[in-house]
Design a protein around this nucleic acid. Structure first.
Length: 195
DNA sequence: TAGAGGATTGAT
DNA sequence: TCAATCCTCTAC
């Protein structure tokens, strides 16, 4: 069952980031479905320096973060990688969850083809890689997450609280002390986590 | 309008 | 450890 928009519109981005673990993220083009279960997320909120919308600073790039929860925020990182975020909270509240890793579930062969690799090993173990494997690019920026080409779904997987690990977020040293916030959530011992 | 740098990745 | 690579954002 696809996740309802009310799931995303709650005013608690770290709670949503935690609950997204075990949920399915899928894309479907030309009759081919690809996707997997989320095993690594990071929360970003307008109240801290790691966030593109810190202090509600709106730019052309991040304006989608200010929209309604339940939409995609996709941007280009290092000129090479598309990073996929889920916008949360209500309109005007710029919070988002970065999806950092998936455990492959559907269309593995097709994802391997997109990645141009012969092994399924680590094809979705990083934020730039999973977007490529699923065919997500910046043209998806602002799209709703219940469409027929891109959606999140409850696949019936339950992650016990004891299997969820909190740690500081990756690659945001510029955020000063906010880089220490334990807002990265991972599934303990999962072999598909990013490096 | 020029210049700096980034929520990464894979190779050395 | 380092280059790839191209917007976006900021300052002038």
């Amino acid at each position: 069952m696809k996740l309802d928009q009310s799931f995303y519109q709650r005013n608690d981005v770290t709670k949503i980031a935690r609950e997204l673990l075990g949920k399915g993220l899928f894309t479907r083009f030309s009759g081919k479905t690809t996707g997997g279960t989320i095993v690594e997320t990071e929360a970003y909120s307008n109240s801290e320096r790691g966030c593109h919308a810190y202090q509600n600073r709106m730019t052309r790039r991040n304006e989608m973060m200010f929209g309604d929860g339940g939409h995609a925020y996709v941007y280009l990182c290092y000129g090479i990688h598309n990073l996929f975020n889920i916008v949360t909270n209500g309109a005007g509240e710029a919070d988002a969850v970065l999806i950092r890793a998936l455990e492959p579930l559907e269309g593995v062969q097709f994802m391997m083809k997109r990645m141009n690799v012969k092994s399924e090993r680590r094809i979705t173990s990083g934020p730039g890689k999973l977007t490529k494997a699923l065919g997500i690019d910046r043209s998806f920026n602002g799209d709703p997450l219940w469409s027929k080409h891109l959606w999140l779904e409850d696949v019936g997987q339950f992650i016990p609280a004891g299997d969820i690990v909190r740690s500081p977020r990756i690659g945001i040293d510029y955020a000063g002390k906010d880089a220490l916030l334990p807002w990265r959530f991972t599934v303990k011992g999962n072999s598909w986590l990013s490096k």
